[in-house]
Design a protein around this nucleic acid. Structure first.
Lengths: 348, 348
DNA sequence: TCCCCTGTAGAAAGCGCTTGCTATGACGAT
DNA sequence: ATCGTCATAGCAAGCGCTTTCTACAGGGGA
């Protein structure tokens, strides 16, 4: 029924071993023989059986990319950049891996499930992107799983995620704290003293670090922290919309809204518009990440640009073994404040 | 080194066959035996070897999702919905498949490459989303590949893609033509007679069909078609921006800009704003798809809402064999016009 | 001339799992 | 008491590939 290695071997009048070697290109095969084999492969339209190959070789050409939400452009952009580095060129030796994106939906269970599935497939590498869940038991479970993956020969790379101790995993961390501080400092510099904060999901590392940066900036400006000026939600537009209404309902005198990311900020802008508040005259708004949407809201969003594409591409290269891991297995990625029209001097 | 089925069998004092059957749950195993096995699995922290299993069973639990551009929310949303249906529950029998998203970047070569890779992995199903490349040789190559996949037992589902003849593939097609006509008719109804069209990549089916719908609406309104009022580009924001400038440069008297999708429309809005033109007083703008960005541009985008999530979920279910394929293997999906602030009566 | 080295190909032993077929009790039926 | 029938469990034969080890030429160097 299906064509196998043996069929090719028969047709090319060589042994299966030789065919395998031609296909993998990691053993000397005389040129005429090679050509004969290649011709047979072509004539029979032979397709290697992946599972069999993976079983025999004890590795596969699968690379997993875990994302928290594939519908979120933040992850779409990273996944795209990683995959571009992975879907490379030629043979097991060279590259030619199947980059697969797995959507965890931010759920630790599904994250573990996917890691197990990838472990089961004996994946060549795994790249985990975005914030981690900080809940201790889950963090421990994930760490254990990553450790096992590493021991099993799977290369593990974290991109935009805190390092995992003992898990020979390379981590590229985003400077969320510093970035968030820069954003809030910008606002403070414009005279804002009453700022609302639209945070992400409570237990997420990204949420935590950005919030810390915000608070650090407030503290060093001598602004007292008021828990009623922070609301938690998801990292999406809807949460931004609802959160902004909530914050404004609690305290109409806020002059600035700091959002956990650009999608949230976009939602906040919509809420402000509908409330008849002008941006930035009445309320300034800031985002984070600098996704395309930052340019679509009017006025353009002041935000912190994260070099997502570059960082993700680097993660992909490291996962493929085409680039050195940073010293100590941990590399930091910094962002850059981009000032657009959504922020202005505070009213009053 | 690694724990195998045999280890589990030894520990549970049963044969490997029994362990396999407990794990797959498709053969009667006495309750006490089953429990003993399960306990052993747990104690040894056993993880099934996917390749070995796939080899022996001649199928795998991989489901491929092909997208043209993972960084585009259009595909992100669909991938997310498909994956949600696929990353189901329990055992080979029940569902528990590994949904993997493959980013073709719109390139036919990569599309073929991924299909081969999936064929190589003996994927259980493949879902292809979004427009197809219409170039004849490539279309034929893809069709041949899909046919082979189908013969190999892989279920093939097309979502938002034209049907492929002879390739026992289920197709869920979007009514791009009808939707585009509705959009343009809306504009014509508002008195617009000079409309620019920002099209997608030339050879893409989506581009073609939407353009046809637009032209059909113009024709039935007795508006003469002017090729200088159409520009082609990518399905992204940047193309919308540049295309709008180009179109306006050619003919400043346009009163409406019809975009191939929302991202393009968002770019066009930015271009209009920068050109000092008001939306919709000076120029009306329309999008297509109704992605989140449609609500972020100001004013909100009049667009054609496609039920992406529903359609994709359905495609996922069909791929999993959990839902009947539509009669004849082809199902149509219609959109709905959503009128927001970006369109108004034509000036003059 | 003989031997050893280098280059190339084959034989064969698995990799870890699934599954058709067979074996074994335990029962109720005859 | 005897036998057919279920319900379970084991045996063993692969699934299609990789890779170690062995075999065999041909070609120098001694």
């Amino acid at each position: 029924m299906t064509v196998t290695l043996a069929d090719v071997a028969a047709r090319a009048q060589v042994s299966p071993a030789t065919v395998s070697r031609v296909l993998n290109g990691n053993y000397p095969v005389a040129a005429p023989t090679r050509e004969r084999v290649l011709r047979a492969v072509d004539e029979l339209d032979y397709v290697l059986n992946g599972p069999a190959s993976a079983l025999a070789a004890a590795t596969s050409d699968l690379v997993g990319i875990l994302v928290n939400d594939i519908a979120d452009p933040f992850f779409g952009i990273m996944a795209s950049a990683i995959q571009a580095e992975i879907g490379g060129t030629g043979g097991r030796a060279g590259g030619e891996r199947l980059a697969v994106v797995c959507n965890t939906g931010g759920s630790p269970e599904r994250e573990l499930k996917y890691l197990t599935l990838l472990q089961r497939q004996r994946a060549a590498a795994v790249v985990l992107t975005g914030g981690a869940v900080l809940d201790a038991p889950h963090a421990a479970a994930v760490a254990a799983k990553l450790r096992k993956l590493g021991e099993g020969g799977t290369r593990v790379v974290l991109c935009g995620r805190p390092p995992v101790p003992d898990a020979r995993a390379v981590a590229l961390t985003f400077d969320n704290l510093g970035g968030a501080r820069a954003v809030t400092e910008h606002l403070v510099g414009l005279g804002h003293r009453r700022l609302g904060y639209l945070a992400g999901p409570e237990e997420r590392s990204t949420t935590r670090h950005r919030l810390e940066g915000h608070r650090a900036a407030l503290a060093s400006a001598g602004i007292e922290e008021d828990p009623r000026r922070t609301v938690h939600g998801q990292f999406d537009r809807r949460s931004g919309y609802q959160g902004a209404l909530e914050l404004l309902g609690r305290d109409r005198s806020l002059t600035a809204l700091v959002a956990a990311n650009d999608s949230v900020a976009a939602g906040a802008c919509a809420a402000l518009r509908e409330s008849g508040l002008r941006i930035p005259e009445d309320v300034s708004v800031t985002g984070f990440d600098d996704l395309p949407v930052a340019m679509d809201v009017a006025p353009g969003l002041t935000t912190l640009r994260l070099p997502l594409t570059e960082a993700a591409a680097r993660a992909g290269r490291i996962a493929m073994g085409r680039e050195e891991a940073p010293a100590g297995g941990i590399g930091g990625v910094r962002g850059e404040l981009v000032v657009r029209g959504s922020t202005g001097v505070a009213r009053d």
